[in-house]
Amino acid sequence: MLLNFDKLGMWKWVLTGFSVLVALFLLVPILFIVALSFGSSQWLIFPPPGWTLRWYQELLADPRWLESALTSAKIAIIVTLCSVILGLLASFGLTRGRFAGRETLRALFLTPMIMPVVVLAVALYAFFLKIGLNGTLLGFVIAHLILALPFSIISIGNALDSFDRSIEDAAILCGAHPLEAKLRVTLPGIRHGLFAAAIFSFLVSWDEVVVAIFMASPTLQTLPVKIWATLRQDLTPVIAAASTLLVVFTVVLMIVAALLRKGFKS
């Protein structure tokens, strides 16, 4: 009865009320940023004396914001591609391979996900300073790839685990080249896993701050670094405007993801 919503009785309302409060707690800051971005007070006095689009104008007038957004997008897209390819290969090896230490390797591959990002950031910073990769696109891509790969391996690995292998074998038995069987049977069969891997890899890179703070140079800044630097100097409402655009972007991404998922199911 505790697991049947309709039979909860009074508890139903307590549980619902509590959850509504939590939902508000989760939602309020996001709505608040949106409101703030249209407020006319430079010093974040809220409710603001009036409403304005000034912060969006300032945001668009400063080419560095757009530049850093483009940098972020470029890095995130390269990371996504590399992460899905490497993750796909590694997942194949981990789920189907038969060599000693597979579980250990799997744990190793997932380590960057649980390990404190600041440790990785500092270590890569020192290493990249030495080999001259600091502040370069390649350096960013490598660092973010390390962080994104575990998500890719988990998503694709789970999909491969639940993919019925005999379908691939059947294709081979019917005369398909094994590579062709993989490309035309297995890959489509695990496409939701690939898709999840791509989304997560993109988000990991797109949202990543800590490594980026250490890696950034005056000529190469990602959007989170730009926000971070601005935040530390200034709480200007321009940040609220940038954040609002990011929220909109997230919502769009979620809708696309939901639509695509629906597409996969049908």
Binding site: I33, P224, L246, T250
Partner: peptide, 14 residues
């Protein structure tokens, strides 16, 4: 999901 996927810095700023 929205709160989880919204940029970390944006949420902290709020």
């Amino acid at each position: 999901l929205l709160s989880m996927w919204t940029n970390l810095l944006a949420r902290t700023y709020a």
